[in-house]
Design a protein around this nucleic acid. Sequence first.
DNA 1: GTCTATAGGCAGATAGAC
DNA 2: GTCTATCTGCCTATAGAC
Lengths: 193, 193
Amino acid sequence: MAASRHTDTAERILDIAEKLVQQRGYNAFSYADIAAAMRISKASIHHHFLAKADLAEQLIVRYHQHFVAALAEIDQLPDPRKRLRRFVQVYLDVLRSDRMCLCGMLAAEIDSLPKPVRDEVRRFFTATEDWLSRLLAAGRRAGTLAFTGSPDAEATLMVTALEGAMLVARSYGDVRHFEVVAERLLAGLGMAH
Amino acid sequence: MAASRHTDTAERILDIAEKLVQQRGYNAFSYADIAAAMRISKASIHHHFLAKADLAEQLIVRYHQHFVAALAEIDQLPDPRKRLRRFVQVYLDVLRSDRMCLCGMLAAEIDSLPKPVRDEVRRFFTATEDWLSRLLAAGRRAGTLAFTGSPDAEATLMVTALEGAMLVARSYGDVRHFEVVAERLLAGLGMAH
DNA sequence: GTCTATAGGCAGATAGAC
DNA sequence: GTCTATCTGCCTATAGAC
């Protein structure tokens, strides 16, 4: 693993900011929130991240890197079905920690985001859908996953449905709402249990 | 139709605010934005809506009423399949006007919303899923819609997937992304075309 | 790399004249 | 029902001492 580009303090700032954005959104968190949580001053945060837009951009780049690393681990699993279940589990874990997907949250705020942040959000969704499309294609080739449309279309359905399920489930404060959707999605791929 | 509870000016304020919230979110619009769009003062808006939280609450109640009225119109259509297509079309129309579903947007911000607003968001999703569940059940009874799970589960999948598809499609600025999902959802109910 | 102090702006909200 | 003026508070960001 390559060394991080950030100092320990910068990483801790990103950790706090990540949680705040996933729970409240970009427009509803402030340097003051981070400062209070870390018990440092607002000015100290500016030393590590010149502007809020910079913080947001580096936040999403790091999130994307972590997500790619998680997908690479999933790729080690031998069975496409197991890989798919693990993929869904990643979303469920985020929801269980009382958070929305970082990029799903930022997607809602897309019109009020700095352009570099907007671009990173798009990159995240494109990469995720591409990875999932390859997984679905492999599963169909292996005869263990079944669907009628293209792998791309099926991946788009799955990613958007998982994002939407997180969104709505959070409004209910009920993880079950997400689980119902996840089960139906897997059932639609011939994975009824 | 019962007379509106709002004056003309109040209705116009709600129209502007609705668009702003659907495009930017609750935390990214201000009384100043509405004042500028209507060319009146911020103080005038406070005359009609004492606080921002009041405005938001009445906004969502009105949105819900309009949505219920749209569903009642759809209920006049004889064929469950036609009703379902029309239902999806309602979401597509919102997306085409460069907006997110009002309640989908507010769902993202749920942790930073005043409690009365949170409650109205939940009411909206519950009512929508209930209506759709009844539609799906009627279609299956009539033999024109096919699905394996419960009508409730299928309705939850559909509503959350449509919300998520709007969310992600908006981040791409590409309506096609939504249409792909809508087509797959309908195909999954035996409505391939 | 941390701090205090502060600039400059915008937020939501109120007072009171017309 | 509209306005101007104003309050208070928080925001992002910067200056400069330690």
